[in-house]
Computed example of a mutant assay.
Amino acid sequence: MTALHSPARGVLIAFAAYAVFAFSDASIKILHGSIPSYEIAFIGALFGTAALPFIKAKEDSWLDIVRTTNRPLWLLRFVCGAVGAIASIITFTLLPMAEAFCLLFLLPSFVTILSVIFLKEDVRWQRWAAVIVGFLGVLVVLRPGFRELSIGHLAAAIGGLSAAISIVVLRKMGPAEKRLSLYGAALLGTIIVSGVLMIPQFVVPTPRQWLFIASYGLLGAAGNVLLMTAARIAPANLVAPPQYSQMLWAIAFGYLIFDDTIDLPMAGGILLIICSGLLTLARERKRGTPLPTSVVSSDSQAPLATSAAGESATVPNA
Rank of each mutant, 00 (worst) to 15 (best):
S24F: 05
F42K: 09
A22T: 08
V20K: 00
A16Q: 03
G10N: 04
A8L: 14
I40L: 12
Y38M: 13
A16V: 05
R9K: 15
V11G: 01
G33R: 03
D25L: 11
I13K: 03
A50I: 12
F15K: 00
A26F: 11
L31A: 09
I40N: 04
F21L: 14
S6A: 10
F23G: 02
V11I: 14
G48V: 05
S6R: 06
P7C: 04
A17Y: 06
L46R: 02
I40D: 03
T49G: 07
P7V: 01
S37D: 13
A45D: 07
R9M: 12
H32D: 15
A8V: 14
P36D: 07
H32N: 15
H32V: 11
I43S: 06
K29F: 04
I13D: 00
A26V: 11
L31N: 07
I30N: 05
H32L: 09
A26L: 08
A19N: 08
P36S: 10
H32R: 15
R9E: 02
I43A: 13
L52A: 09
S37K: 02
G33E: 10
L31E: 11
S24E: 06
S24C: 13
D25M: 03
P36E: 02
F42V: 11
E39T: 11
S34A: 15
I30P: 11
A50Y: 11
A8D: 06
A41S: 13
A22P: 07
V11D: 07
T49H: 00
F23M: 14
F23P: 01
A51T: 04
I43Y: 14
L46K: 08
G44T: 11
T49L: 15
K29P: 09
S27Q: 05
I40S: 04
V11T: 12
E39Y: 06
A16L: 14
S37H: 11
A17R: 05
S24V: 04
G10M: 00
V11A: 07
R9Q: 12
A16F: 09
H32S: 15
H32T: 10
